[in-house]
Design a protein around this nucleic acid. Sequence first.
DNA 1: GAAAAATAGATAGCATACTATCTATTATAT
DNA 2: ATATAATAGATAGTATGCTATCTATTTTTC
Lengths: 154, 154
Amino acid sequence: MTIETTKVDRENLLYRLGFLTRRWRQVLDSAFQSLGVTDAAWRPLLHLHHMGDGIRQKDLAASLGIEGPTLTRILDQLIVKRLIDRSEDASDRRAKLLALSPQGRAMVTQITAKVATLEHDLLSEFSDLEIDQMTLFVERLEKRLQETRSRLKG
Amino acid sequence: MTIETTKVDRENLLYRLGFLTRRWRQVLDSAFQSLGVTDAAWRPLLHLHHMGDGIRQKDLAASLGIEGPTLTRILDQLIVKRLIDRSEDASDRRAKLLALSPQGRAMVTQITAKVATLEHDLLSEFSDLEIDQMTLFVERLEKRLQETRSRLKG
DNA sequence: GAAAAATAGATAGCATACTATCTATTATAT
DNA sequence: ATATAATAGATAGTATGCTATCTATTTTTC
C-alpha cells in the first residue's frame, strides 16, 4: 500500500517569498496605474493617513520600514502631485512636517478600497486560521532575520 | 473572565512579506560579501548547476523567475568574474549556451554550504509542520497572484 | 559658552527589478 | 521563394531599494 504524500520543497521557502513579493508588487502596480500612483507611492499615503497629519519624515520612514533617502525621493513625487504637503517645523528647523492634502485624502479613500478588495480576493480561498498562522510565521521570521542581520554586521 | 487572544493584524500580511524579502536579501548580501557575489548573482549559479551546463539564457531566466534583460545584466558580471562561460549555439545562432566554469563550480560549493547554514539557522525554531504549511501557503498564494495578474493585464 | 556629538533631511551613486524596443536569426505562411 | 511572424538576446530608460556622505540644525559635554 502506497501512501500519497504531498511533496514539499522546503529548500526554496525563503527564495519563493521573493517571488511572491515581486508578483504582488506587479499586481498592485497594474491595479493602481489608473490612479497614477505606484506601489511604493501609495504606502506612504496610507501610513500618513493612519499616523495622522503633522508627523516627521523620519517617523514615516520608520513606520514604512524604509530608509530616509528612499522616502525622500518618493515624497518628492507625492508633493509634485499635490497629494502631500511638506512644511517646516517651527520648533525644530531641521525637521519637516507632513500632511495629507485634500486630494491626498481623496486618494487614500480610493486606494484603501482597492487594496482591500485585492487582498480580500487573493486571500479568499484561505481560512482565517491559515492566515493567522501565516501572519504569525512571518512575524517570527522577521524577528529572526533582524537578529541574524545585526549579528552579521556587528 | 477574559480570554487572552493573540492579536493578529491580518491586514498587513502581504505588505509584511515585502519586508521579509528585503531583510532576507540584506542578510544574504552581508553573508556573501566575502565571496564577492551578490544575492542576485549567486542564484543563477545555483540554478545553472542544478539544470546542468548547456542551457540557454531564456531557460535560466524562466527558472529564476526573472525577465531576460535582468538576467543579461547579471550574467555580464558573472562572465567578467569567469564564473560562467557563454558560448554560441551552433544549431541556432540566435542563442547562447551557458556553462559553469571550474571557478564557478567551486563557488557553487561554497554558496550551497553557506545558504544551507543560513536557512537552517533561520528556520531552526520552526517545526517541520510549520515549514510545510508555510511553503504550501506560499505556493498557493503565488498561483493566485499569477491568475490575478493575468486577469488585470488581459 | 564653545567644541563635539547627534539628528533631520537631501543628494549622489550603486544594485536589481521592470517594460519597451532594437538586432539578428529562425520558422511559418502564402 | 519571399514576406511575415516569432524567438533569443542586448540595450536603454525608469522605479525603488540601499549606503555613504553632505548641510543645517539641535543637543550634549566639558
